[in-house]
Amino acid sequence: MRKLTLILISLLLCLSLASCKNNSLTTAGLDRKPNEQSIKEAVSKYYLAKEPKNKGELKIYNIKSLNDKYLVLAEKYSGDGHRFTNLLLIDEKYNTIAWTSGETPISMCFSINKVDYDGNTILFGTFNNSKWDPKQDKKIPVEINKIDIKFDNNQNIKEDVSIENGYIVVSKPISKVEEFNLYNEKNELQSSLEELGNISSESQFNELKVK
């Protein structure tokens, strides 16, 4: 009986140690998960301060962590003029501390907006489900599920995306985009930087004072 008890204690101890090891590895490997409600409140507060007359629908496309901060791709279209998105930099206390704006696609199926910040090159944009084909002189449908970006620092970033959520990509250190390709689920090329011609916009963050 005593031998059986010792065996059981040993097994329990082993399981306990294994559990602690797995938990620490999982925690270390996880990205910080933002409080989505706090993010939404921060974005709403930003638009209320910057565009108080804008009664459009708020859409948050994408959120990505950057060190101890968050990058948030959002849009609040007032219904007037050409649409554009905003990339907001939100701190750990959920205050918007900086912003920049970016182009949205018109005839093409995607946009590339670039901003350099704190030693990083940040690309962001949205998608359309169609593009203009000059050979056929009409719009044709596209399916965008993956992006493949190559930078001049030899970094290659591949990510799964969706047309509804756009994208935010971060490359460190600051670098130049050499290739930007979009693929569907079958890995068939849908569009590229070569087809787009140029990066849609290049800008810097505008700082906001936290009140």
Rank of each mutant, 00 (worst) to 15 (best):
I144Y: 04
I122C: 05
I122Q: 03
S111G: 11
D148T: 02
S107G: 13
T126W: 02
D116I: 06
Q136D: 05
K139H: 14
S111P: 11
K131G: 00
N128F: 02
L123P: 06
Y117N: 14
C109G: 05
K139I: 09
L123F: 01
I147D: 07
C109V: 04
K135R: 12
N113E: 11
P134S: 11
F124S: 01
T126D: 00
S107A: 15
C109T: 00
P141C: 08
T121Q: 03
K146H: 09
S130E: 14
S107V: 14
K131F: 11
M108T: 14
S107H: 15
I147L: 13
F124W: 04
N128H: 08
E143W: 00
I122L: 03
F127N: 01
M108S: 15
F124C: 05
V115P: 03
K139L: 14
N120A: 06
K135Q: 10
V142F: 08
F124T: 00
I112G: 03
F110D: 05
N120H: 00
D148Y: 01
W132L: 08
P134A: 10
I147C: 03
D133R: 08
W132T: 09
C109L: 05
I140F: 13
G119H: 06
S107E: 15
I147Y: 06
K139E: 14
V115A: 02
I140S: 09
D137W: 03
K131V: 06
D118K: 02
V142K: 07
S130R: 10
N128C: 04
I112D: 10
D118Y: 02
E143G: 13
V115T: 10
D118H: 01
G119C: 07
I147W: 02
I140R: 10
I144T: 08
V115F: 06
D116F: 07
F127W: 00
F127P: 04
I144F: 01
